[in-house]
Amino acid sequence: MQYNILKKSGLKVSQVSFGCMSLKADSVDNDVIISKAIEGGINLFDTADLYEKGANEALLGAALKGRRNDVLISTKVGNRWKPDGSGWDWCPTKKHILTAVDDSLRRLQTDHIDLYLLHGGTIEDPVDEAIEAFERLADLGKIRSYGLSSIRPNVIREYVSRSNISAVMTQYSLLDRRPEEATIKLLSNNEIGVLARGAVASGLLVDKPAKEYLDMTKEQVTSILKDFSNALPEGKSQAETALRYVVDNQAITSAVVGIRTLQQLQDALAGANTTPLNTAQWQALQELWEGNFYKEHR
């Protein structure tokens, strides 16, 4: 496993990290999967207070008990469940962030969060207020660093220019190359880490049948997937190649891979440990299609 540094925080992050969203609180395999992930070199585990109404944080906290010093925890804030549990509201206020962190710390059974991410964001948000909350939590020692989970270039630009964020989590894959045009270079130039989610494009780059994806028709996706299958480097599977396309982009700090089963963990570790794509192989994948662009929130 290779590791990269989130430069503004000093955190040393595994090139592939563990997205916990798919884990279910009633699964008996969670502890085994998380333990094997740590043994395999994964050291960043990402969750959110939104997932399963906090139960996802709780299961992660329980699984990491006694191993907290071996790992980094990333969780998210900004969505507030309605009292009747029927859904959630977007609430990026200073008051909510300062309150919600204590509930996350309790569920995670820890006294600090390594990376605290705002779970979304709009250009109409009280950005300075949210930043004040994160800075306050850092001063109190409740978080080590903070960032943003967003695909919106206009929101990302605001936080880059007005805050001390150390990372942005955003969707990125061979089928979703929008960040290449709008945000990856901006973040790299400002020494802000990029945590890429969705490396296998909801399974389309692995084994799921073609369907409409983003602004592409099923026929367009089918054509790209056929070319992708024909362009695999010798000795690499589709899953490994899709993951390497992401992590071998020098601007990417870590690929956050959603993991629910031991097989998915093994696939993620195989992709992390296989040889990197060389420049020619990576460029050949880029040339499979022209890429896509953000049409909104620019």
Rank of each mutant, 00 (worst) to 15 (best):
D26Y: 09
S161Y: 11
D111N: 15
A284F: 10
Y294R: 14
K95M: 09
D128F: 14
L50Y: 06
V155I: 07
A63T: 02
L186N: 09
N292E: 12
R244H: 04
A272L: 12
Q220I: 03
T274M: 07
K53C: 11
A231H: 06
T253R: 05
R298H: 15
A138F: 10
L11D: 04
D248S: 09
V247E: 01
T183V: 14
S14I: 01
I5G: 07
E180N: 10
A272T: 07
E287C: 13
Q283F: 07
W282T: 05
E158G: 08
L285H: 03
T217L: 08
N30V: 14
Y245F: 15
K218A: 13
K7L: 11
Q15S: 14
L60V: 02
A284I: 08
R67K: 14
Q281I: 03
D102V: 04
A25S: 14
S173W: 02
V16Q: 05
A196N: 03
W88H: 12
E132K: 06
G193I: 04
G61M: 02
E180P: 08
S9Y: 04
G78E: 03
Y245P: 00
R197D: 02
V16F: 09
L269Y: 03
L175P: 03
Y172D: 06
L118R: 03
N189Y: 12
S150H: 06
A37I: 05
K65M: 12
Q171H: 15
E57Q: 00
D49A: 13
D46R: 01
S149A: 13
